[in-house]
Structures are given as structure tokens and as C-alpha cells.
Design a protein around this nucleic acid. Sequence first.
DNA 1: GCCATTTTGGACCGAATGGTCCGCAACAAC
DNA 2: GTTGTTGCGGACCATTCGGTCCAAAATGGC
Lengths: 190, 190
Amino acid sequence: MARPREFDEQQALDGALDVFWRCGYEGASLAQLLDATGLSKSSLYETFGDKRRLFLTAFDLYQERQLAQLEELLRTRKPARRSIERFLRRVVHRPSNPWGCMVCNEAVELGPHDPDIAKRIARHLERVEAVLTRVVERGQRDGSIGTRSTARALARFLVMSWNGLQVLVRAKSSQPLLDDALALALSALD
Amino acid sequence: MARPREFDEQQALDGALDVFWRCGYEGASLAQLLDATGLSKSSLYETFGDKRRLFLTAFDLYQERQLAQLEELLRTRKPARRSIERFLRRVVHRPSNPWGCMVCNEAVELGPHDPDIAKRIARHLERVEAVLTRVVERGQRDGSIGTRSTARALARFLVMSWNGLQVLVRAKSSQPLLDDALALALSALD
DNA sequence: GCCATTTTGGACCGAATGGTCCGCAACAAC
DNA sequence: GTTGTTGCGGACCATTCGGTCCAAAATGGC
């Protein structure tokens, strides 16, 4: 029981996440992280360990949030197809997705070089695929999604399209390009 | 005149391209570049300028090659759909595409931070889209591709799918995932 | 008020970064 | 062989990187 902390851990982590999201792992300098978290060097190292650990913590947080958000799609009662449409439309809506998807970004940056992180990404994508599979199954039951392909295959296709859109967003592609691509991806669910 | 060079410029550039492709711009250290090109520091700086210029030169080369390869699709006489299938199938064939697509990688790494490079990427994607549009038009004429969507929209969809696959390749996704996603992307051409 | 405990700021560190520069080496012209 | 020109190896540089450490500050318990 001594001197209390002057910062909120969760808030600091959010700040760090922001920087990693925007700049990637290597691209995020300690200075930026200190600035974004508002911590001093010693506080940051004391609280989160080294840069890599901090990154992993932030990355896990990001993945959990993304998955939670995705699982909301399961809970709604609207036709599944509408849920998926909303899901993809949020990707190409720039204001709410300025830096693309962090998982996609890190898959590109670290995937080939960091087996540990590659595994986390693979696991996450599998979970995303699993959630989407259940949504598609629901859509095939409620008639909003065609049955010419298995739910699993369609979910995999959605995972790919999702990542494709994220890349285009990060590349600052034109809105017509994004809209056309999105529309056709959705039409594959017929 | 005087002392002749001991290296082949094109060959050195290929070496540098390899490193940038694999590691990205920031991830490629001078030491790696020197090693891959076989040049000494002074020769490299004399020949190619600084790291950024070298990168731009290599990146341009990559884009030109990719576009040239893509344009081969135009020249064949087979049904256009088969050409597109071959085009996408090469993406998910790991041995011939171990590091994913450099344009996709750099879109993710530098897109949001380097306006100059973002422009180059945007221009390249437009050119890719243009070539694919022509291929799709041919396919719509020869009957191998449906006409429920415009050729341009389909081409844009292909650009997105292409990038999506590249991300998954770089993330070392499982082959079944890649295969399913690819198959469904192709079926969107019906 | 004093002590124990914990946080905090910042000095400090070695390594690696991209980049410059210069003296020597190698070759063509004559 | 001499000279003029260019290429080359590597010493050298400032900066930034992630990371450590310690002395001072702050506060709860008594």
C-alpha cells in the first residue's frame, strides 16, 4: 500500500493499441507508444513488459473485441444475409475503419517472419471462419443465402473477401472500387 | 574510360527486390540489401541512390513485371475464364508465390503513411483493374463469364479477391481455406 | 511525522540503423 | 609505363532503436 498509479491501465493499453494498429509492430516506436499511453518508460516496462509483450497484449485485446463484435451478428434475428452485409459494409466505411484491420495488417507484416504471431493469426481466422459459418448456416435456413455451396466454403470465401477489402481500404482505394467489390462479394451468397 | 563495374546492375536490383519483397521496406536492413545485391555500400549508393530510391526502383520493376505477366492473359486464345482461373490459381500455389504480392504487402505497410507510394499503388491497381476488365469483357463475349454484372464491376471484384488471397497466403493459411475461397471467387463469374 | 512501499522521470546503455567519405585499386587511353 | 578516371572496401558518423537502472517523489499505514 503505497503510492498509487497515476494512470489507468486499460486506457494506456488502448493508446498503445491505437499506435500498433496504425503503424504496425516495427513501425511503432517506443517514443510513440510512450506518448500515446502517457506513461513513462519505467511505468510502461513495469506494467506491460517489453515492446513485444505489450504488442501481444494489445493484439489479443483487438482480436477479442473483433470477435465479440462479430458474434453480435449471431445474436440478431434479422435475415443472416443482412447481418453479413452490415459486417462487410462497416469495413468499407472509412470513418469507422481508418487503418484497416489490424489482424490483416499484422498477417502481412509479421506472418512470414514470426511463427508465434502467425499461429495466433491462424487461430483467430479459424474462429472468425467458425462464427461466419454459423451465420451462413442460419442464412441458408432462413432462405437469405443460397445452398449451392456449403456454409463452410461460403464462410471461407467471406474471410478472403473481408481481407481483400481491408487491404483496399488501407491502400486508400476509391469508394466505387470498394462498393463494386463489396456488392459482388455479397452476390456470391445467392 | 576507366575501371569497369564488377557487378550486373539488373542482377543486383533483383537481389534487392527479393529482400524488399520478403521483408518490406522498413524491415529490409541495409546489411541485408548489401548481402543480397553483393555490392559494397558505396557502390550501392552510387548506383541506386539511397534506400528509398532503391526501393522505388525495385518496386517499379516488380509492378512492371506483374503487369506484363497479367497482360499475357489477354493474349491467349483460350476462354477468358480459364485465364482468370490460372491467374488466381498461381496466387494460391505456394511454391511460386512464397511471399505474397509485394504490392499488397506495401499497400498495407506504407499505404497510410507514404502518400507518394500510395499513389503508385493506386495507379497500379487501376491498371490491373483495366487489364482484368478487358479479360472479363472477352469472357462475356466468348460466353465463359456471365453478364449479370458489368465487366468493370467483376474486374473490381477480382482485384479484391486477388488481394484477399494474397493476405491469406502471407498469413500461411491452410490450403483448404485457400482452395475454397478461390473456388467461390471463380463461381462469382457465372 | 515517520516509515515502508511503490511509482515515476529521466539519465544512461549498447547495438543497430541509414548514410557519408576517403584512400586505394583497377582498368582504358595513350 | 604513365596518367586520368572510375569503382570499391571499409572506416567513420550521427541518430535512433529498445531496454535497464536508480534516485527521488508520492502516498497509505501507523
